[in-house]
């Protein structure tokens, strides 16, 4: 039978009262290691430049540049650590929601019925710490795909299996 009742907008399930689950704390280590590696490479390059480049202005300015890089590195790392708490996800009956970001916060939702395929990817570091990234692909532009980083490997597999089954329509 066809029905067409008015929807009470206030009664819709809302994202406000969701219980988000944080990603694994281990993932913070990976973020810090990755960031530190980048800044260490920059600093090393600067140091080599100091030894090789004999330009006078550069030699005079060297310590200022070095200090600026260290300052940026510290601020960036602090933000990373503070923003880490905002990396959370939730799986509802009908969709997957992932939120992150301190300076720019985003809450992205992908309905399960729109998922095209799923993928678990693990870097070398993630394998050492027993972590995984779950990539959720929808149709269309690549920018809108959801990837939940820093899940426990077993957790990622569990979500992956559940979602795959839902996508294939077995549940």
């Amino acid at each position: 039978m066809f029905t067409n009742q008015q929807i009470n907008l206030d009664a819709l399930p809302t994202i406000d009262d969701l219980n988000y689950k944080p990603v694994s704390k281990q993932y913070l280590k990976i973020i810090i290691i990755n960031r530190s590696a980048i800044y260490l490479i920059i600093m090393a390059a600067l140091w080599i430049a100091k030894l090789k480049v004999m330009d006078h202005t550069f030699q005079n300015l060297f310590w200022y540049i070095f200090a600026v890089v260290i300052f940026i590195a510290i601020v960036n790392l602090m933000f990373c650590i503070m923003a880490f708490k905002t990396r959370k996800y939730a799986i509802r009956e009908q969709d997957v929601i992932y939120t992150k970001g301190l300076l720019v916060n985003s809450i992205a939702a992908v309905p399960i019925s729109r998922i095209q395929h799923l993928e678990i990817s693990r870097t070398w570091l993630a394998r050492k710490l027993n972590l995984a990234t779950l990539n959720i692909f929808t149709a269309g532009e690549s920018g809108i795909d959801l990837s939940i980083e820093g899940l426990d490997h077993s957790e990622a597999k569990k979500i992956n299996d559940y979602l795959s089954e839902r996508v294939n329509g077995t549940i």
Binding site: I15, L103, A108, A109, V110, R114, L146
Partner: peptide, 10 residues
């Protein structure tokens, strides 16, 4: 619609 995201800066 394929996905929805809410974005908000500090």
């Amino acid at each position: 619609i394929q996905s929805v995201a809410l974005k908000q800066s500090f």
